[in-house]
């Protein structure tokens, strides 16, 4: 499965806006909604709501992509985002605002780095995590076509 790399970048920009609003308003429900978006996108890239917006509204106005990227790194990033957003939502909604604040801020930093610099923090940290834990995280991630 290959994607137009501008799709995930656009999704990261929307995610940044959503998480920024959530952070300012302290809305656990908004963080939860973002967690659902992460989960849907990780389940299948065609299910991702932001990707849907990109394909319906943004992509037709852009030139065709000059290159495609594999889905595996994008899925991994979505799963990392899902983990942080879930902790954030639980924090806000369970009356632990500090937990909600920290987890939402971490997810926001990652989404912003992806949107502004094309830097995938989760992907960068992947090998470091694997080296430290030695656990086969990638067993659940399909290999990109070579």
């Amino acid at each position: 499965m290959l994607l137009d790399p501008r799709g995930p970048r656009f999704a990261a920009a929307l995610t940044t806006v959503v998480l920024a609003v959530a952070l300012v308003t302290g809305s656990g429900w908004l963080v939860l909604a973002q967690a659902v978006v992460f989960a849907l996108t990780a389940a299948h890239p065609r299910l991702g709501p932001y990707g849907l917006v990109f394909r319906a509204v943004v992509a037709p106005r852009l030139a065709p992509p000059v290159e495609l990227e594999p889905f595996a790194p994008v899925r991994f990033a979505q799963l990392v985002g899902l983990a942080f957003a879930t902790v954030g939502a639980v924090g806000w909604l369970a009356g632990l605002p500090l937990l909600g604040l920290v987890a939402t801020a971490a997810a926001l930093a990652a989404a912003f780095l992806n949107a502004a610099f094309g830097l995938c923090l989760g992907c960068e940290g992947y090998l470091a995590l694997r080296r430290l834990t030695g656990r086969p995280l990638a067993a659940r991630v399909p290999l990109p076509p070579r």
Binding site: A72, P73, L143
Partner: peptide, 9 residues
């Protein structure tokens, strides 16, 4: 390279 690495390509 890693399977989750986009810049590897």
């Amino acid at each position: 390279s890693a399977p989750v690495c986009a810049p590897c390509r």
